[in-house]
Lab assay of single mutants.
Amino acid sequence: TGEEYIAVGDSTAQQVGDLTFKKGEILLVIEKKPDGWWIAKDAKGNEGLVPRTYLEPYS
């Protein structure tokens, strides 16, 4: 379980453990880390770190 967020920009994984996503994708945020990198899952079930500045709450 988690909260749904929509990507407001494209982000390409810079290192192992990062999640690549495109603008408009809905991501499920699993954990919000205080350093600004959140753990999220995409629609295909891929999981990784995403920069919170690229996400907005999805409603």
Rank of each mutant, 00 (worst) to 15 (best):
L49K: 12
Y54K: 14
G9Y: 15
K32S: 03
T12M: 13
I30M: 09
A43E: 09
L55A: 01
S11C: 15
Q15R: 15
E3H: 08
L49I: 08
L55V: 06
T53M: 11
K32M: 07
T1H: 12
A13I: 08
G2L: 11
A40F: 03
G17I: 06
G9P: 01
A13L: 07
E25F: 04
K33G: 11
P57N: 05
E3Y: 09
E25P: 00
P51N: 15
Y54L: 15
L55G: 00
A43W: 09
K32C: 05
G9A: 15
K22N: 07
W38D: 01
I30S: 04
E25R: 00
Y5V: 02
V8C: 10
V50H: 02
S59W: 11
E3S: 08
G36K: 03
P34F: 09
A40D: 00
T53V: 12
E31T: 10
K33V: 06
G24V: 01
I26Q: 03
S59L: 13
D18W: 15
P34C: 11
K23V: 07
V8K: 09
E31F: 13
K23C: 08
I39N: 04
T1G: 12
L27M: 05
T12A: 11
D42Y: 00
L55P: 01
I26P: 03
P57F: 07
Q15D: 10
L27H: 00
E31V: 12
G48Q: 02
E56I: 13
V8E: 02
T12K: 12
D18G: 14
E25V: 04
P51M: 13
K23R: 10
G48P: 01
K32V: 04
G48V: 04
G36I: 04
L49T: 10
Y54R: 08
K44S: 12
D42C: 03
V16T: 11
E56T: 10
I26H: 05
L28H: 08
G36C: 04
E56K: 11
K44I: 08
F21T: 02
S11Y: 15
D42W: 02
I6R: 08
S59R: 11
D35Y: 04
T1C: 13
K33A: 08
V29L: 04
G48W: 04
T1R: 12
T12E: 12
R52M: 15
G9W: 14
A40S: 03
P34R: 09
S11H: 15
L28W: 14
Y58N: 07
A7E: 01
A43V: 09
G48I: 04
Y54G: 06
E47Q: 13
L28P: 00
P51Q: 14
W37F: 13
K23E: 06
P51W: 15
R52L: 11
I26M: 06
T53W: 15
N46A: 07
S59Q: 12
V8I: 14
K23S: 06
Q15C: 14
K41A: 06
D35K: 03
E31G: 08
L55R: 01
G9V: 15
P57W: 06
G36P: 03
W37H: 09
Q14G: 12
G2R: 09
I6P: 01
R52V: 14
L27F: 06
A43K: 10
L27T: 00
V8T: 12
D35L: 04
K22M: 08
G24N: 05
K41R: 14
K32L: 03
G45Y: 02
Y5M: 05
T20M: 10
I30P: 00
I26E: 01
W38A: 01
A7S: 06
D42T: 05
E25D: 15
K22G: 05
G45W: 02
P57R: 09
V16I: 12
G9K: 15
D42G: 03
A13F: 09
W37P: 05
Q15P: 05
L55I: 08
K41L: 11
T20C: 10
I6E: 03
P57K: 11
E47V: 15
K23G: 04
F21D: 01
Y54S: 13
A7Q: 01
I6S: 03
K22P: 02
I26V: 09
N46V: 07
G48R: 01
T12Q: 12
E56D: 05
G17D: 05
Y58T: 07
E56N: 06
